[in-house]
Computed example of a mutant assay.
Amino acid sequence: MPLPRPRGTHVSASHTVWDRALDPVAVVRSGDEVEVLTQEASGGQLGPGSTAADIAVLDLRRINPVVGPFFVEGARPGDALVVDVLSVDLDTWGWSALIPGFGLLADEFPEPYLRTSAVDSTPGGGGVQLLPDVVLPLAPMVGTIGVAPPEPGPHSVVPPRRWGGNLDIRDVGPGARVVLPVGVEGGLFSLGDVHAVMGDGEVCGTGVETSALVRVRLTVAPGRAPASPVVVTDLRTLRLETTLATTGVGDDLLECSRDAVRQAVDLLVEERGTSREDAYLLLSLAADLRVSEVVDAPHWVVTCHVPRRLLPGWPHV
Rank of each mutant, 00 (worst) to 15 (best):
V197Y: 12
V158F: 14
A227H: 13
R215Q: 08
E255I: 05
G199H: 07
V194I: 09
A225S: 11
L235H: 11
F189G: 02
L213M: 09
V178C: 04
P160V: 11
G183Q: 07
L254V: 13
C256G: 07
H195A: 01
L167T: 12
T210R: 04
L254C: 06
W163K: 06
E185T: 15
R215M: 04
L235C: 04
V231L: 02
R161V: 01
R161Q: 13
M198T: 12
V203N: 03
V220N: 09
T242C: 03
L180Q: 11
E185A: 13
A212E: 00
R239D: 14
W163I: 04
V184R: 14
L188A: 06
S228P: 00
V197R: 08
F189W: 11
L253W: 11
V172H: 05
R217F: 15
P226E: 09
V179T: 12
E209S: 08
D251N: 13
T237H: 11
H155Y: 15
T246M: 03
G164V: 09
G207R: 08
G183S: 09
A176S: 15
V182A: 07
S156V: 03
W163L: 06
L253C: 03
V203S: 04
L235F: 13
I169G: 05
R217S: 03
R262S: 14
D168G: 03
V231P: 00
L244G: 01
V208W: 12
S156T: 14
V197T: 15
A221Q: 11
L218P: 01
A196C: 10
A245I: 04
L253H: 10
L191A: 09
G164Y: 04
T242P: 08
G201R: 02
E185C: 04
T210M: 08
G223I: 05
C204E: 09
V203L: 08
V182R: 08
V194E: 00
C204L: 10
S257G: 15
G187V: 05
P159W: 03
V261P: 06
F189A: 02
